[in-house]
Structure formats: structure tokens, C-alpha cells
Nucleic acid binder design. Structure first.
Length: 394
RNA sequence: GCUGAGGUGGCGGAGUAGUCAAUCGCACCUGGCUGUAGACCAGGCGCCCGCAAGGGCUACGGGAGUGCAAAUCUCUCCCUCAGCA
């Protein structure tokens, strides 16, 4: 059975919509946040906890699983979801982004966004990369042992078919946010050729293949890319680099305006609190992001209004001295296991003592927070209160 | 009481005449993380002024010396530890 997307309700004032993606491993109610489990595990969280937190689907990575333990082994052991004991749908990313971040991304200045806006637009890469891009694909060195590997559209799709996720992604090239128009266009055209090859290589029709849009910060390229992907694929993933948040949002506007209404749209790698409202409002159905688990492991946790706001980006650091004696839960409005059972003071202690439980509790809270927020947004779309909900947060 | 070792920044511990306000850990403080080479990274950490470059002051158990110059050498006092009485 091929995964199918259906829209249940559209918001009247915005482009937001609520829907469902039916897959062989179960349904995904959208909008949906997809937690990232790069190596077949959402870091510091068990599948059972994920399920209880409301996760519907998990994303893993082709690049990482190919290098270790290898797609053949995972296939032999029953495929990705069985292997990781995740009783639900899965998605795999193509590995393009990883290969990129080991290359151009190594130059610093940001990968998805431009960190230092004062100096963008570079002519050539300065620092040595761990990869080499040709028309055929990418040759790169494993970050694990330095051995040489090759990824191409055909190889990536073959790996993803063996892994057996329900949703898979075309192998794409990535532009740096520092690229000028010409370099970005060059990268986009290579991506387009690779996406056509990905499509040709794609045989398993139980898997829904997402084409990925690129074009950096440039309107003209973004529109061209949106039309290209819409013409060739049944599902749209928005990728690539952006100048900043405002640019990300306008990129979504440009893209959504140029793709079919009935195709599901996945925003790759975005998920700060304000972003979630902004991207769903612009017509995004699913999105994945490492933010909740990564910042959780490094001590940050999400907080809801009124404590949380745009200025503090709805987050604070459990490591701060002020939480040493704080008997309140991480977030007083949160129903997650961490918030129902532990104080900030205790988690502060765990974190400072590097107790492993702290990483679990903080990550779990953050993932639950995003899942719950997304669920509330979905409900608000269904009962026509999206704008009201958004106003209470932003 | 004798003999030996030793007393350095919040702690551990380098340094043993100038390049020392003092290597390095830890602790502490601040900042960062958006398709995860990340349970991580970066910066700070005697006091004062400065955005900074930099400048001033006080410091290596206490005190007194030698010397252009001392955490580093000498004398003395105090304290800690080990062994012997």
C-alpha cells in the first residue's frame, strides 16, 4: 500500500490545514512533528516513551545507518521500524544533508541559516571538506573511521528501500547560505538532476518518495524548484538553506504557492516554537527537527507562556543557578512524565551531576512539548481557533 | 621531642630566580545549538579602570633578608603529614 495524504480541514484565514497520512505502519495525523532518531534512536528516549509522548513517526538517517550498522543488516533483522522496535511509521532522510555538512558545512557560518550575515556570498570553499561532489554523486570520508564511501541518488534510494521506511527522501545537493545566485542555481540544477535519478531508482511503491525543494534564499530559484518538484513527485519536502527566519517563511510562501494543494508538504529540519506556528500557518503538514533532543541534552528545556516568549525563545537553561532550589516542574502547563514527577531543582542536580536521567527527562519534556503543541495546533485548525491559539503564544 | 616531606588561586595540582596574576584538571559563571561527526562547543574565572588595546593594585603560610629582579635563594616563626621515640 502506498502512503496516502488526505486533507481533513483547511483553516479559513491562513494556509494551515489538518490532515492524515496513511502508511503501511499506521496513520499520521497532521500537522505532525517528527522526532529525529538519526541512528535509529531518538537520543536518550525509548520508543515506549516516545509513543506515550504522542509521537506518531520517527525519522532516521540513511548516511548514518549505511555507515553503521549497514542497511543489509537492518533489512535482515526486519527493517527499520522492527529493528528499532518502533511500532509505527518511519521516515528516512537521504543522507544528502549529512554529506553536505561534512563538506561545505565545515566552513562554518551556518548550514541551514546564515550565522554571520555580514559576510555572505563566497566564491569558493576555503577549508578542506570531507567530501567531493561530482555529477555522479558524492565521495566522502566516514566521520567514524575515515574510510571512503560513495553516495549517489541510486545508492541512497537503494539504501532507503532496504531500510524500509514509509516516507523516504530524494538524494539532493545542498547550497550553502553563503552562496551567491549563480552558485545556488548551479547547486539547484544538480539537485534536480539527482532527484530525477532518485525517482527512476525508486521501485518500492509502499514508500512515498519526497522530492526536495532548494534554491537558497532566492525567490526565482525557489519558485522554479517548487514547480519542478511538484511536477515530478507526489510529496513535497522543503529543504536547503535560508538567510534567516523571515527568509525561511517567505521561502515557504513562494513554495506553497507553486505546488499542488493535495500533496503533503514536509519542512525539513525546522522546529523552534515560533517556527512551528509560522510554518504550519503557511501550509506545512509535517516537520522534523533535532532541536528538542539536542538542546535537551545540553540543558535547555521549553517553557510555555507567559514565562516562555519570543524573546527567550520559549526556552531556558536548567543549569542556571536560579533553579538549584526551584521546586516547580520544568513547565507548569506540561503533562509529560518529567513535569508530572520531578522538580527543576532535582533535574538541575541530575544535570550538574551528569546523571543520565537528566538527558532523558529534558529530552522527553522537549519532545513532548513540541508534540503536544503541534497536536493543539491541529485541534485548533479543526475547530477554527488557530489564530486565537497563535495569538496566545506569539 | 627527633628525623624527613610539605605549605601556590574555591579545590586538586604545576612552576623552583626574570618570558608568572601564575600550565593543567575540577568546580563555578556566561553564551551558543533548527533534514544530529554534538550527554556538546565557545568564552570567562585575584581586585579596580576600559568597548578594546591596555593600565593600575594586591598576591604563591606569617615576618625579616639577599639581589637590578623572588612563588622560586637565606634566616626565623606558625601549621600539616609520615616515620622514630
Amino acid at each position: 500500500m502506498k502512503p496516502k495524504f488526505r486533507i481533513l480541514k483547511k483553516d479559513k484565514k491562513t494556509k494551515a490545514r489538518a490532515g492524515v497520512i496513511k502508511t503501511p505502519h499506521g496513520d499520521i495525523e497532521t500537522p505532525a512533528f517528527i522526532p529525529v532518531g538519526t541512528q535509529g534512536s531518538v537520543k536518550a528516549i525509548s520508543p515506549r516513551e516516545l509513543m506515550e509522548a504522542g509521537a506518531q513517526i520517527v525519522l532516521a538517517n540513511t548516511y548514518h545507518l549505511h555507515l553503521r550498522p549497514g542497511e543489509d543488516l537492518i533489512k535482515k533483522l526486519g527493517g527499520l521500524s522492527k529493528w528499532m522496535s518502533w511500532n509505527g511509521p518511519t521516515m528516512t532522510d537521504s543522507g544528502g544533508f549529512q554529506v553536505f555538512s561534512l563538506g561545505v558545512g565545515k566552513e562554518g557560518g551556518g548550514v541551514k541559516f546564515l550565522r554571520d550575515e555580514s559576510k555572505y556570498e563566497i566564491e569558493q570553499e576555503a577549508k578542506p571538506r570531507l567530501n567531493k561532489i561530482t555529477e555522479e554523486g558524492v565521495t566522502f570520508q566516514s566521520h567514524i573511521d575515515g574510510s571512503t564511501h560513495k553516495l549517489s541518488p541510486e545508492v541512497s534510494i537503494e539504501i532507503q528501500e532496504k531500510l524500509g521506511a514509509d516516507l523516504i527522501v530524494c538524494f539532493d545537493d545542498l547550497e550553502s547560505p553563503k552562496y551567491n545566485f549563480e552558485k545556488t542555481k548551479e547547486s539547484l540544477e544538480l539537485t534536480n538532476r539527482w532527484e530525477i535519478r532518485s525517482k527512476k531508482a525508486h521501485k518500492n511503491k509502499n514508500q512515498l518518495l519526497f522530492g526536495v525543494t532548494h534554491g537558497g534564499k532566492f525567490r526565482e530559484l525557489r519558485i522554479e524548484s517548487a514547480k519542478f518538484v511538484d511536477k515530478n513527485f507526489d510529496a513535497i519536502a522543503l529543504g536547503g538553506a535560508h538567510l534567516n527566519k523571515e527568509n525561511l517563511y517567505e521561502v515557504i510562501d513562494w513554495t506553497v504557492a507553486n505546488v499542488s494543494e493535495d500533496k503533503s508538504r514536509h519542512q525539513l529540519g525546522i522546529g523552534e516554537i515560533d517556527d512551528i506556528f509560522e510554518i504550519i500557518e503557511r501550509g506545512i503538514d509535517t516537520f522534523d527537527c533535532v532541536i528538542p533532543t539536542r538542546i535537551g541534552r545540553t540543558g535547555f528545556f521549553f517553557i510555555s507562556p507567559p514565562l516562555g516568549n519570543i524573546k527567550n525563545r520559549f526556552r531556558t537553561d536548567i543549569d542556571k543557578p536560579q533553579y538549584r532550589q526551584d521546586s516547580k516542574p520544568l513547565d507548569s502547563n506540561c503533562k509529560c512524565y518529567a513535569c508530572q514527577n520531578f522538580s527543576r531543582a532535582y533535574i538541575h542536580h541530575l544535570f550538574r551531576s551528569r546523571e543520565l536521567l537528566s538527558y532523558n527527562l529534558l529530552s522527553l519534556h522537549n519532545v513532548h512539548f513540541l508534540l503536544n503543541l503541534t497536536k493543539k495546533i491541529r485541534e485548533s485548525i479543526l475547530d477554527n481557533s488557530f489564530s486565537t491559539l497563535k495569538k496566545s503564544w506569539l
